[in-house]
Simulated scan of single mutants.
Amino acid sequence: MHGPVSAAWLLVALCVATGAYCLLRMRSGVEEQRRAAGGEALMGFGMAVMAVPAAVFTPPGWAWPVYAAVFGAAALRTLWAARSSPHHLHHLVGTAAMVYMAASMAASPPAAHHAHGGSGVPLLTGALLVYFTGYVLLSGARLVPAAGTGVATARWGDRPELARACRLSMGIAMVAMLLTM
């Protein structure tokens, strides 16, 4: 990830915490929640790995195509699941964005991973930024009224306001990562 190292570490911490909570959500009694939480955990941990500052660790050249393949497989799985629920369309956009970022990193020379420049924002990056910015604003607006309605006896995996907060966190992280491309 480009940008300040301290911001990158904060992004890594946010994504790891989100991924860890999504793993807890996989213990839910509702199958749909478990399935969604698994995909969200993959996204959280994948985003954390991608956000590690390049000054600390630069993945080998073969890692980016593998990364793109993993998220490509997740995108295909999500595409299949989207037949039954429109909620999966957001996950499809997220996994496709991860494939796009990994492919961009694979296509750029290693020196480009450490320097800014170029001829502006590519069209797909801009479209993803618009989508995820809108998603963050909408998710944040939906989360505010729900913040005080949590049931204290609900299990950690079944708390809808925490699931929404995780999705909001990942949306914010995606915006940050797209801004640094």
Rank of each mutant, 00 (worst) to 15 (best):
T180Q: 14
V175P: 00
A173D: 05
L123K: 07
G120S: 08
P53C: 03
A74F: 09
V16P: 02
P160W: 10
H90M: 04
L123Y: 14
L92Y: 14
S108Y: 13
A165G: 09
L137S: 08
M177K: 04
S139L: 14
R142T: 10
G44W: 03
A106P: 07
A74K: 01
V175L: 00
R35V: 15
T153L: 10
V144M: 03
T125G: 06
L128K: 08
P4Y: 09
F45Q: 02
G140D: 08
A176N: 01
A147I: 15
F132E: 08
V16N: 00
V99K: 06
A96L: 15
A81P: 00
W9Q: 03
T149D: 11
L162T: 11
A163R: 11
Y131F: 15
A8F: 02
A127I: 07
P65E: 07
L137Y: 09
A48T: 03
S104R: 15
G171A: 06
P122D: 13
R142E: 15
A152K: 13
F71E: 01
G171K: 02
L10S: 10
G44Q: 06
R77F: 14
V16Y: 07
S108M: 14
F132V: 05
L11S: 02
E161W: 15
W64K: 02
S84K: 08
P86V: 01
D158G: 09
F57G: 02
H91E: 02
S119Y: 15
A103H: 09
L76P: 04
C22G: 00
A103D: 12
L168T: 13
A55I: 11
T95I: 01
S28N: 07
E32P: 01
S84R: 13
S84Y: 09
S6A: 12
P122L: 06
A102E: 06
M43T: 10
R77N: 11
C22Y: 04
A36D: 13
L42V: 15
P110N: 06
M181F: 07
P60V: 01
S139Q: 11
G150K: 05
V99C: 12
A41P: 05
L14I: 14
L138H: 13
G38Q: 08
V49A: 10
L143S: 03
A146M: 14
V52D: 05
A154C: 08
V66F: 14
G120W: 11
G72V: 03
V30P: 00
G118D: 12
G39C: 03
M98A: 12
V93A: 12
A173C: 07
S85T: 01
S28F: 12
V66P: 03
P60R: 04
A63G: 01
L143K: 02
G72A: 06
P145W: 05
S104T: 15
G61L: 11
V144G: 01
L178E: 07
P86I: 00
V5I: 14
Y131C: 11
S119N: 12
R77K: 04
A165H: 05
F45K: 03
M177C: 02
R27N: 09
P122Q: 11
G61I: 05
A20Q: 04
L76D: 05
R164P: 00
W80K: 02
T133S: 15
M47I: 04
C15Y: 02
H87E: 13
P145Q: 03
Y21F: 14
E32C: 00
H2G: 03
